[in-house]
Simulated assay, not measured.
Amino acid sequence: MYVAVKGGERAIDNAHAWLAEERRGDSAVAELSVPQIREQLALAVNRVMAEGSLYDPDLAALAIKQSRGDLIEAIFLIRAYRTTLPRLGASLPVETEQMSCDRRVSATFKDAPGGQILGPTFDYTHRLLDFKLAADGEVPQAAQTTGREEQTPHIMSFLDREDLIQVEGEGADVPDDLTRAPMELPASRALRLQALTRGDEGFILGMAYSTQRGHARNHAFVAELRIGAVPVEMDIPELGFAIEIGEVTLTECETVNQFKGSKTEPPQFTRGYGLVFGMTERKAISMALVDRALRWAELGEDNVGAPAQDEEFVLYHCDNIQATGFLEHIKLPHYVDFQSELELIRKLRREATALQQVAE
């Protein structure tokens, strides 16, 4: 047994060394630096921060480098590191109306107050490979713009004025924290939104797409999609007031959905909501669609059996770290389990053969 353990340790050490060699690749090619990943693979960095529940572009970039670009592995590294950090306090809720918008579009109002800001987006590109990038060609410089410090009102506020959008409840003063307590069902909307924010982008996208194809009767319009930096404030007890401690880049999406009304509510619009770290608009839109699908019970709608309406299915399967752990554990040694099943199959085959011989 001692020899087997030592042999296993050597094999693992060798695997780690080989992994480091493979991660580095051809030593004749310059090594990627953390700042290069942070600045040039920003969308990957944003996803790692969002699903890792830790806003730190440098650490997210480091995790991407260490994981050889495997974003789920990078998210795992960030979540593991996050558990070692002390919790010094809680910030105040961010006011997204104060967002300095780099991108702000609405699919419902053409002349939205505050204007439409296309920002840096793939929406209008031709999806053709740019071989200048392979040749390290120069990238055209964007026109210089002045910072947008003024407040940009939410599109939904204009529907509020006409009483056409459902009034949202205040919710709990201190919402449940998914990073400190396990998921419990039925979950509050705040807890659902946290789970969707941390959930795998591909899974949430698939659920959202299913609602658009008729599985949940969820036809939505993007009332507003905005991306930009918002200040983060924290109450300091010694001072007796809040101070700004920094800012974070967020993507916020509000969808507007038709609602035919119920016994207690008149016909009106309802909303879905998504808020994610960084420039992560596909995730934010998907999150808003799934959020709205999960609200069927509180709105008195019928459950048509759609996957996106099943709270347990969505919330317990959207987390890619939990899914990865459960999936990948089957590649670890299961020698005893398999041997017992092997013996069972052999026994059943012997019994079946004996019965067949008796019948003959």
Rank of each mutant, 00 (worst) to 15 (best):
R82D: 13
R82E: 15
T83Q: 14
T83N: 08
T84F: 07
P86M: 11
R87K: 13
R87Y: 02
L88I: 15
L88D: 03
L88V: 15
A90N: 11
A90Y: 10
S91N: 09
S91Y: 10
V94Q: 05
E95N: 12
E95L: 09
E95R: 11
T96F: 11
E97A: 13
E97V: 12
Q98H: 12
Q98R: 14
D102C: 06
R103D: 05
R103A: 15
R103P: 03
R104S: 00
V105D: 10
S106F: 01
A107G: 05
A107L: 04
A107M: 04
T108P: 04
F109T: 10
F109P: 00
F109S: 08
F109G: 01
D111F: 04
A112R: 07
P113Y: 06
P113G: 09
P113Q: 10
G114K: 02
G115P: 02
Q116K: 07
Q116N: 13
Q116I: 07
Q116D: 06
L118Y: 03
L118H: 04
L118E: 12
G119K: 01
G119Y: 00
P120H: 04
T121P: 01
F122R: 12
F122M: 13
D123F: 02
D123H: 05
D123E: 10
Y124N: 12
Y124L: 14
T125V: 13
T125Q: 13
T125G: 06
R127E: 13
R127M: 12
D130E: 10
D130N: 07
D130Q: 01
K132C: 08
K132T: 15
A134G: 12
A134E: 13
A134S: 14
A135S: 10
D136S: 14
V139S: 06
V139E: 04
P140C: 01
A143L: 14
Q144L: 12
T145Q: 10
T146M: 07
T146V: 09
G147V: 14
G147A: 15
G147F: 09
E149G: 10
E149A: 14
E149Y: 15
E150A: 14
E150C: 05
Q151K: 15
T152I: 12
P153M: 11
P153A: 13
H154E: 14
I155M: 08
S157Q: 15
F158K: 01
F158L: 15
L159V: 14
L159T: 12
